Simulated assay, not measured.
Amino acid sequence: MRLCLQCQSTQVDADWHCGHCGFSPVRIDGFPCFAPDLATENDGMAAASHDNLDTLQDGSFWFRARNRLIQDLARRYFPRAGRVLELGCGTGYVTRALGEALPQAAISGSEIYVNGLAHAARRLGGKVELLQMDARAIPFAREFDLICAFDVLEHIEEDTQVLERMVAALAPGGGVMLSVPQHPFLWSRVDVYSHHKRRYRRGELAEKCVAAGLTLVRDTSFVSSLLPLMFLQRMMERTDAPFDPSAEHSLPRAVDRGFEMALDLERRLIAAGASLPFGGSRFIVARL
């Protein structure tokens, strides 16, 4: 059900007009905006991040390998999902992959930055409902079979509030798929540039999911094989050197392909049932 964020009524029509209090969200660049004050500037990310990401994602091993893992998990645990929401959909790169994995699903994508939604609209071609909103205030109740947030929660101070709102927006029997950066000892200038509030401790996200009322289904690390290289790079990092935020995603072709092959091996291990204890990322699948 659609939810009015002003009066909490569910008398909301297809154009987001509330029949109880009369509230309708403003539109910016054609997108319904539920947090317009945060649509162009906030403390979650740099305003130009989506413009930069849109030029990098197809060429980076990290985004390609992560998408394949996301597709594997979606097909395995939510093959019959009818309604899907991706929080922090950014440029629509992952949203498109979800649509390929779950072709029967009606997918909605939300993003706090309207410039990200502009890229997503171009990439998705009108196949997905796109909304500008704050993940701490989701305008739905008991609506979705699956809600996803991939590398989103670390940008939000109130991550437990987001998890609680996700649970409230799930239909009975629904579930979530989440990924976050892991291990505080890997903190670097990339995290600072990305406006991360934290890198998660091992087990931290699982504890917060359980506290929000979810039951864990899968809990595994990812980017385990590259962890030594990540640690070494962080240890050698010079704070006085010029910083290029795109460097990690603009590697020589042979290196990029080698890293992708390593992550594909991890993905196959996860598909076979393995749960990797350490890695640069943490993935969780959980259900009501």
Rank of each mutant, 00 (worst) to 15 (best):
C4Y: 05
V12A: 08
D15P: 00
W16Q: 02
W16N: 03
C18S: 07
C18F: 07
C18Q: 02
H20N: 12
S24H: 06
P25N: 10
V26A: 13
I28Q: 15
G30I: 04
F31M: 04
P32T: 07
C33H: 08
A35R: 04
L38S: 07
D43P: 08
G44Y: 13
M45L: 14
A46E: 15
L53V: 01
T55E: 09
D58Y: 00
G59Y: 00
F61V: 03
F63R: 04
L69N: 12
L73Q: 13
A74D: 04
A74V: 09
R80V: 05
A81N: 04
A81Y: 04
R83N: 14
G88K: 03
G92W: 01
A97I: 02
P103D: 13
A106T: 12
A106R: 13
I107Y: 10
I107V: 15
S108D: 10
G109Q: 09
G109C: 09
S110M: 15
E111G: 06
A118R: 12
L124D: 03
G125W: 03
G125D: 02
V128Y: 05
A135E: 04
E143R: 12
F144Y: 14
V152M: 10
V152F: 04
H155G: 06
I156P: 07
Q161P: 02
R165L: 04
A169E: 04
V176I: 09
M177F: 08
S179E: 01
H183I: 05
L186K: 08
R189G: 15
R189H: 12
R189K: 15
S194R: 11
H195C: 13
R198W: 00
R201L: 10
R201Y: 06
K208M: 03
C209K: 01
V210R: 13
L214M: 14
L216A: 08
R218E: 13
S221G: 15
V223A: 14
S224D: 07
F231L: 15
F231Y: 13
M236P: 02
E237F: 00
D244N: 15
D244K: 10
P245C: 08
A247M: 12
A247G: 08
S250A: 11
S250I: 01
V255L: 14
L263F: 11
P277L: 01
P277Y: 00
S281V: 02
S281D: 11
